[in-house]
Structure formats: structure tokens, C-alpha cells
């Protein structure tokens, strides 16, 4: 069992959990993910790692409740346990293994969308610790759905640019508008862009960075079952080749990812998931012969 040592709601339906999991904290690096299972009947859910503390043996997870299993996870509080936490999985971000002197010459642009802010956090933290330049754009629907603002600000300072779709906080508009502003109006130069967020956001970021000729890395979070390179559910087309997000990714060259296909595959369990969610939230009242 894996004990939760801290639990905090960050926004409506978005929660942060700090979990004791030495098997993961021992070796995890920015860019990797892990899988959790709430209880014996639960699904294996892939989540990106938001932070880790090797000395304490803990990892920090941030998730948005969408399906049955993540709704269950919303109820977890300090002192509760996950049945399983396993990882780290996937490859670490490329920069972790780069020559540090070479890396210091580069300028990074991070684009985080919604809960995608969580996996961006350990990356910028790592780059900050290693003295590498970066700017961070965080985009979210509105002020209420903004997460990790304080944490991000501590790391990024005035290199942080927040934008909301509805203009309720800081800048008004999509992340792509901020990229254009920084690059075209302010003339900022970048060598690499890292975009993590909803698939549709990544698709449009890549469309823009292609025009700007700015190499872009995206982090894919497709459906997974085991997460260890066995089931093949997480397959994606990258540069026309079949790749598995769990062992070949989760980070890929954004210019090569077939987003339209990946978005279709995300829809696979919509109906079945939605059905289970209804059963979960409405309980017995939903069951009735023949209405499925």
C-alpha cells in the first residue's frame, strides 16, 4: 500500500496528492510518468509526475477527475492509500541527458495547458537548478482553473506568462497568441519549445511553431493499460511509424505526431467510460434493464 501524506484540491476537479512511493521517487526524472491503482477493482491510471523528493521517498501527482477511477481518486485524503503506485515509466526528457554546457547555450519555451502545468513543473525546476534559460506560458480556461501558480512563479519569476481563455486573469486569449507575442512582437528567440496540455492545444501550438521553425516536443498521454510496454493500447503514429507512448515516449517530436489520429483514439472509451461514470455517480438509480 502507498500512503498519501498530503492532499489538496487545487481547483474544481483538480487535486494534488503527495504519495509515499520509494520505488518511483528513487529514480524518477522530469518527463516520466507513473501508474496508480486506487483499489483492487480499480483501473491502472497513467499520471505524469509533478514533483519528487528522493529523501522523503515521495512523489507528487496532480490529476483532473474525468472518469470513474479519477473521480474515486478525488475522494482520497491524507492517510488514505493507493493499492498500487508504479514507475517511473517512459523516457525522461531529452535535456536531462544532454551535455550541460551545450544545454546552457539553449533557450527553452514551455507551453503548459490546464493540468499540463503539472508535468511542466519538474522540467522547469530541473532547468532552473541547472542554470538553463526558459520562459513558461501557462494557459487555462479561467482564473479558477489555474493551478500551481505560486510554485511556478517561485521557479520562473518574471519568465512566467499566464493567459486565460476568458480573460478573467492576466492575459486574455489562447497560448498560441502569447507565443506569437513573445516571438514576433518581443523578438524573443528560442531553440526548443516544450508543449504539454490537451491534445488540441498541442496540435495548434505545433501548427504555429512549425511556421516559426521552432522545434517542439510534446508529451502524449494516450490510453494505457499496463504502461510497461505490453498492451500496445498507447500506440501512436509518429512520422508514419507506430510508436508506443509508454516505452518510446511519452515525449515525441511534435512535428511528427499525427494528432488527429491520436485524438480519435482518445475517444475510444468515451461511451464505456461515460457509462461507468454514470453508474458511479448515480449509483443504483442508473441501473435499469435495457437502458445501457
Amino acid at each position: 500500500m502507498f500512503e498519501i501524506v498530503e492532499a489538496q484540491m487545487l481547483a474544481d476537479n483538480i487535486k494534488k496528492l503527495v504519495v509515499k512511493a520509494e520505488n518511483v521517487s528513487h529514480a524518477c526524472k522530469p518527463g516520466q510518468f507513473l501508474m496508480v491503482r486506487t483499489d483492487e477493482a480499480g483501473e491502472r491510471i497513467a499520471l505524469t509526475i509533478c514533483d519528487y523528493d528522493r529523501e522523503e521517498g515521495t512523489v507528487t501527482l496532480v490529476f483532473q477527475a474525468l472518469g470513474v477511477s479519477t473521480k474515486k481518486m478525488l475522494k482520497l485524503e491524507k492517510g488514505d492509500c493507493f493499492a498500487d503506485v508504479v514507475g517511473p515509466l517512459g523516457k525522461e526528457s531529452e535535456f536531462v541527458n544532454e551535455d550541460i554546457e551545450e544545454l546552457k547555450k539553449k533557450r527553452y519555451l514551455f507551453v503548459a495547458g490546464g493540468v499540463g502545468t503539472a508535468p511542466v513543473y519538474p522540467q522547469v525546476k530541473w532547468l532552473k537548478e541547472h542554470g538553463v534559460y526558459f520562459d513558461v506560458i501557462v494557459g487555462t480556461k479561467c482564473h479558477d482553473t489555474l493551478i500551481l501558480e505560486k510554485e511556478m512563479e517561485e521557479i520562473a519569476g518574471d519568465h512566467l506568462f499566464i493567459t486565460t481563455d476568458d480573460g478573467s486573469y492576466k492575459r486574455h486569449g489562447m497560448v498560441t497568441a502569447v507565443i506569437e507575442d513573445l516571438v514576433k512582437n518581443e523578438g524573443r528567440k528560442y531553440d526548443v519549445c516544450v508543449a504539454i496540455g490537451p491534445m488540441i492545444m498541442m496540435k495548434f501550438v505545433v501548427k504555429l511553431t512549425k511556421e516559426l521553425n521552432l522545434p517542439t516536443i510534446v508529451s502524449m498521454n494516450p490510453i494505457m493499460v499496463d504502461g510497461t510496454g505490453m498492451c500496445g493500447a498507447c500506440r501512436l503514429l509518429v512520422g508514419g511509424e507506430v510508436k508506443f507512448a509508454c516505452v518510446d515516449g511519452p515525449e515525441f517530436d511534435g512535428f511528427k505526431v499525427d494528432f488527429d489520429q491520436a485524438m480519435k483514439r482518445m475517444a475510444l472509451y468515451k461511451t464505456e467510460e461515460g457509462r461507468k461514470l454514470l453508474e458511479y455517480t448515480e449509483g443504483e438509480t442508473h441501473k435499469g434493464n435495457g437502458c445501457h
Binding site: V225, M230, C231, G232, L237, K264, R265
Partner: peptide, 23 residues
Amino acid sequence: LPMFMGIPGEQALGVYSANEFLT
């Protein structure tokens, strides 16, 4: 990792590897 045939349509919804289906 499961093998696929490399034919068109293998990314369609409703195509599983036996590994995924059985797991």
C-alpha cells in the same frame, strides 16, 4: 510489445492487440 501488420486502418477505434484485449 505486440506486433501489428502494418496495414491501413490499424489505428482505428476497435482494433486491439491480443495483449491489450486479454490484459
